[in-house]
Amino acid sequence: MTPPESSPISLVQGAIEADLESLKREKRRHFFPAFVAWIAVAAVVFSLAGIRGSLLLQPWWQVLAQGAVWVMCLGVLPAIGLGVIFPGRVTKTLIIVGALGLTILGSFDWSVEPGGSWLVGPCFALQTVVGVALLAIGGWSGAFVQRARPAAGFWIASGVALAALNTSTWHCADTTFGHVIPNHIGGGLAMLLCAAILGQLLHRQHFDE
């Protein structure tokens, strides 16, 4: 039988829950500057490299999907990786599937025939620069070592990769399959791999000490 809400033990349970809540608040305060720095990196890149002119000429649902990916990569995914929010298994699955679906939906021009150069170009390099900057901020702020489970680092890595990919999507006007797959998606996957490996190394180093 569990103790009733007003039992003596529930006071201690309440104190521990409140302690955990205050740790979460502390974590949010600690990572707020890193969050601002992530946004600043994107803003600096857009001000230097420019936002494509056709951004708002896309179908509304595509702009919406890209906006949702920004929310995911800057807010939801890092928050899970940091242990600020704790969605259940089903919600986490929906978030992963949603992030993938929205990225694919927002990355291509679905009205044109598949085509393009299929060559790796400057967009890959742009994504690498953005990804490395975000990764440095994440690693330096301690984002990869906030949770005991090493797998939590993948959420941060996914945030880095998606943010880098979405930067390309908003910068580059070439939305053909032959360009987007090797450059944008390929760059995102490469960044995901690098961020995940770095995250695991940082996690191992931190928890082995």
Binding site: I9, Q13, E17, L20, L23, K24, F86
Partner: peptide
């Protein structure tokens, strides 16, 4: 999840452990 800082997980765990 409790170690990672989830208050809800602690609450559930405590309700299992206390009795």
């Amino acid at each position: 999840r409790y170690i990672d800082g989830d208050p809800r997980a602690f609450k559930q765990l405590a309700s299992l452990l206390t009795p």
